[in-house]
Amino acid sequence: MKTITTRLIASLIPLFAIFWIGVYWLTTDLIAFQKQPILITESQALQVESGISVIKLAQQLEEQGLIVDSWKMKYLVKLEPKLASIKVGYYQIMPSDTLATLFKRLRLGQEAVFTLTLIEGKSIKEWQQALAKSKHLVVGEDDFNQILIANGDTSGLPEGKFYPETFHYHAGDSVQTVLQRSFDMMQMSLKQAWEGRDADLALNSPYELLIIASIIEKETGKPEERNWVSAVFNNRLKKGMRLQTDPTVIYGMGDRYKGNITRKDLRETTAFNTYKIDGLPPTPIAAPSRASLFAAANPAKVDYLYFVSRNDGTHVFSATLKEHNRAVNEFQRKRK
């Protein structure tokens, strides 16, 4: 009996050896299969549709010439069942990807991320043009006002109420999800600026602060000048002087503005012509940055009432009309 058992075991040993060698070979081959690079030289989009299996997806990738030996995916899934759990979405295949790194992203649902930059100093109309060109973002007809309404603002005046920033989103997201974040950020920044305002500020509400901040944003791009520009406007308001600022005139002209303001434009009475109206225009004229919000809330302690461009991005500030006219003659009329 022992002899028969010994002979049986002896005969099975080669079979077991062959079996385990086969298992080792297959495992090694499947590991190598996962490590194969995706055959692309530049980024490529990949849309994973609902109901597709990981095996079918691998076949599609091979049909597109991106991988080879897709049949091995069937055995790889048996070896690692978690690989079958890919998530629906819009992904980006990178030139540095291997099959393993790609399918890990699909399993974790790490979809492609897109960016949208809402630039400071731009109007809602300009932002709408940028939104219309955004990739994979669902844009509606009246998204800005829809956000206002959703937050209890029925004014129909979205200008200046959204924060300029770079936002991230996924394919298929609604623009309203982005705009809600922008709105919330502006509300928070405006609240902080208003609460930290100077006691001598000639403004009556956070909305008035928003209006002045938007004008500061359009008047200068120099960080060191923002508080001085703010001081000029604050000093003028305290004295009952008109703001007399060109950016508001331009905003009121709308599409009529072609790059120059004429004397006729300055004489025209519009809600935004601060050469003709007292006090502030009715709304902001652009999206102010956080820096402009805080400059509007904290004007510099100077007695300036005027400023004029040097035509190099900086300005000359003056406390008297005589000083201002001298600067205008030098830098605008080229007379000394």
Rank of each mutant, 00 (worst) to 15 (best):
K2A: 11
T3F: 13
T5E: 10
T6D: 10
L8I: 09
I9R: 15
A10S: 15
I18A: 14
F19K: 05
F19D: 01
T28D: 11
L30T: 09
L30M: 12
F33L: 05
F33M: 06
Q34G: 15
P37S: 13
I38L: 08
E42R: 10
Q44I: 00
S50C: 10
S50Y: 14
Q60E: 08
L61T: 00
G65M: 05
G65N: 09
K72E: 12
L76M: 11
V77Q: 14
E80D: 15
K82V: 15
Q92K: 08
Q92T: 04
P95S: 10
G109D: 00
Q110R: 08
Q110P: 05
A112D: 02
F114C: 01
T115I: 08
T115M: 13
L116Y: 02
T117N: 06
S123M: 11
W127S: 05
W127R: 06
L131G: 06
K133G: 03
V139H: 03
G140S: 11
F144A: 04
N145S: 12
L148Q: 06
A150H: 11
T154Y: 14
S155N: 15
S155E: 12
K161F: 01
F162V: 00
P164M: 02
D173T: 02
D173W: 00
V175A: 07
Q176F: 12
V178A: 02
Q180W: 07
F183T: 00
M186A: 04
M188Q: 15
W194C: 07
N204M: 11
P206R: 13
P206G: 09
I215T: 10
K218Y: 03
N234S: 07
G240Y: 05
Y251K: 09
M253A: 07
G254N: 04
D255T: 14
K258C: 06
G259T: 03
N260L: 04
T262E: 00
R263E: 15
R263M: 13
L266R: 05
F272L: 03
P281D: 01
A295L: 01
A297D: 02
V302R: 14
Y306D: 11
Y306L: 04
F307A: 06
S309E: 12
R310G: 02
N311E: 03
D312I: 06
G313K: 14
T314E: 05
V316Y: 10
F317R: 09
V328A: 00
K336Y: 15
